[in-house]
Design a binder for these strands. Structure first.
Length: 668
DNA sequence: TTAGGGTTAG
């Protein structure tokens, strides 16, 4: 391949073999030499000259030398008298293909438009149309797509399945799913790709139910063989899927005889995107057992569930695989790794990945900023945000969410306010509900309740339940009953079924000693048939994830866990711990309240891990609610008596507890 | 000698 001019083959056949082997920019000198020799050897009228042009265009394109590929096309089309008219069309097709592969869709369409005026020798054919329809889809050009599709119909090429499939995709991507369906419905013969195109088409157009319906129609068809394209197509329709649909997709996956890697990746993503973190990690372990080689997509998909579950040993194993396979530098993976480490409570791991990166994008910076933020290191997060600006990167909407959340976690009131202002005035980013929520949280928890409320009234969008929820939380902390009631009214209006807020309100009444109101909130809950959202904690032990519910007695080790917990609570009581009865609903007698508290799921999880790990092992507990102040205090004291580091992750942040001191500084 | 659907991180 690195043949110098003097070592070039002499026969046309070997020269063409050499041309075909040129597939990277480094091969360009050899390619040009071979090209020159071919020009001498093959007169344009030679029967092989046309064939050579096709190969040369392909090779130049593969070597990222598109202008040279273009030059070959021009010379071959001007001397097309020698070759058949088919050849010129093939040359165009090959170059258009190269342009679409490089995402140069506009260039591809311009080249296509130049075909007809050159005469019948350059007529687009059934190979050309799929390519240009794809370019229309990619550039969202419905008008041109419609023109091309009507030209296709006139030429009677619409019966060609390749043309039909790209037409389906084009219509769906350009926001015309019904036209896509018309093409699909009119097809005489459908193959697996026809179904896949229609499933993906409906999904892309946001018609998830229709996509799932077509998917189901297809898989029950006798002899149908869903493939990786089917799985990938249905994946995009499963954003917020019903559990029975997820079970159904899994059964289709299980029945596939040949499971391509993309099918595994799609199944993983279905689980990951729907919050089935345990299922995702279990499926990944099944891949390992079946010796399916994961690729970077697999690992980037399964890392977030590891982080959600604080499944640190699996997460670290994935990092080992990434190192062993030399998959980095890879922004996608490195960014996902940082997040996994941060969510497993291992800030140092996240920082090490960040420091080792050879290139960083806004997502990388956002990941490390939110890592510091979640761990309560607001100052470092703010410092990193400034570093990012110094590097010349432009923060986007999500980067601002990260820095605002960091400010709110650390109580950095002035920084938060100034970032919010610069976001709008300097970066012209329209604040979304998340930004408002951070600000209300920041102001409210700092005690500026009225300011937080006024802030809400100036919002450009309708405040959602999270915004009001942040205000209610602040009102509870600072016992502001008047504004708290306004927040509560809005919450009941917006999300009457969300019980977390009822509990918050009830606790606020309890704190103010308004027991009659506590009772009336309780009766509303009972009347509406609402039960308190069950607090759940999960922990990783070995390769398994264990789940604990409040007051749970289902675990096989239940007896021992409660014994261990009694022992721990006894010890911390002697240190002065008194259960904070106010933290729970005031609906039971004092004694029962204490009993209720003692079995909060995070306490059970901590006892379980202390029982099953050697002394001094760091303990990681993840829960599905904000941890209550009583469990927070208990965890701090338990960290002292057992000399154990406890990492407690709740829905809002990560509490890193060492020797009785929490990284949140008790500000949460 | 060329063509269709489809997966990943904040």
């Amino acid at each position: 391949m690195h043949a110098s001019r003097s070592h070039l083959p002499t026969s046309g056949e070997s020269l063409l073999r050499l041309v075909s082997a040129c597939r990277a920019p480094a091969h360009l000198p050899s390619l040009r030499a071979a090209h020159a020799r071919l020009l001498v050897l093959l007169h344009p009228s030679h029967p092989s000259a046309a064939h050579a042009s096709v190969k040369l265009i392909q090779a130049y394109a593969a070597c990222s030398a598109l202008p040279l590929a273009h030059a070959v096309l021009e010379s071959s089309s001007s001397s097309s008298a020698g070759g058949s008219s088919r050849t010129t069309t093939v040359c165009f097709n090959v170059l258009i293909r190269a342009l679409t592969a490089a995402s140069l869709h506009r260039d591809a369409l311009v080249l296509f438009a130049s075909m007809r005026p050159r005469g019948p020798a350059c007529s687009p054919d059934h190979y050309t149309y799929p390519l240009v329809l794809k370019s229309c889809a990619a550039s969202n050009d419905l008008l041109l797509g419609l023109q091309i599709h009507s030209a296709v119909a006139k030429l009677r090429l619409d019966a060609n399945v390749y043309v039909a499939h790209s037409a389906i995709s084009m219509y769906a991507r350009c926001g015309r799913p019904e036209d896509a369906y018309r093409v699909f419905d009119g097809m005489q013969h459908r193959d697996v790709v026809s179904w896949n195109a229609m499933i993906a088409g409906f999904a892309r157009a946001g018609l998830f139910d229709r996509a799932i319906e077509v998917f189901k129609q297809f898989v029950v068809l006798p002899g149908s063989m869903p493939d990786a394209g089917t799985m990938a197509g249905i994946l995009s329709a499963m954003g917020n899927a019903k559990s029975e649909d997820i079970v159904f997709v899994r059964s289709v996956f299980n029945n596939m005889q040949f499971k391509e890697l993309i099918s595994w990746n799609a199944m993983l993503a279905v689980y990951a995107n729907n919050g089935y973190h345990v299922k995702a990690v279990e499926l990944f372990m099944l891949m390992e057992k079946d010796e399916v080689e994961p690729d970077s997509v697999t690992l980037a998909t399964v890392l977030p569930p590891c982080g959600e579950l604080s499944a640190f040993s699996v997460g670290k194993r994935i990092h080992e695989i990434i190192k062993r396979k030399n998959m980095c530098p890879n922004l996608l993976l490195e960014n996902a790794l940082m997040d996994m480490y941060a969510n497993c409570g291992c800030l140092k791991g996240a920082r090490d990945v960040f420091d080792s990166m050879s290139a960083r994008d806004v997502i990388s910076w956002t990941s490390i900023i939110s890592a510091y933020g979640k761990h309560g290191h607001g100052r470092e997060a703010v410092y990193l945000f400034e570093k990012m600006l110094e590097e010349g990167l432009k923060p986007d909407s999500i980067a601002f969410v990260a820095v605002l959340a960091a400010c709110s976690h650390a109580g950095l009131l002035d920084d938060g306010k100034s970032y919010f202002d610069s976001m709008t005035s300097r970066y012209h980013i329209t604040p979304k509900a998340e930004h408002y929520t951070c600000m209300v949280d920041l102001l409210g928890r700092a005690g500026c309740i009225s300011e937080a409320y006024d802030f809400i009234t100036t919002m450009l969008i309708e405040p959602n339940e999270r915004v009001w929820g942040a205000l209610l939380q602040a009102c509870r902390i600072h016992s502001n009953m008047d504004i708290g009631l306004v927040a509560a009214d809005n919450l009941f209006r917006l999300v009457p079924e969300q019980t977390g807020y009822y509990v918050l309100l009830s606790n606020m009444y309890a704190r103010a000693g308004r027991w009659a109101d506590v009772t009336s909130v309780r009766s509303v809950m009972v009347n509406k048939g609402i039960k308190k959202f069950p607090g759940t904690s999960i922990v990783e032990l070995g390769d398994r994830v264990h789940t604990f519910h409040i007051g749970d007695r289902c675990h096989p080790q239940s007896e021992m866990i409660y014994q261990k917990l009694d022992e721990l609570l006894g010890k911390i009581r002697r240190m002065g711990y008194n259960p904070e009865v106010e933290a729970t609903l005031h609906d039971v007698e004092e004694e029962d309240k204490e009993g209720h508290l003692s079995v909060h799921s995070e306490k059970l999880a901590i006892a379980f891990l202390l029982l099953n790990t050697s002394p001094g092992t760091t303990i990681r507990v993840t829960m599905n609610l904000r941890t209550c102040s009583d469990c927070h205090l208990a965890a701090k004291l338990i960290s002292v008596i057992t000399s154990t580091e406890i990492i407690l992750k709740d829905t809002n942040r990560i509490h890193h507890i060492v020797q009785g001191v929490c990284s949140c500084g008790d500000y949460w």
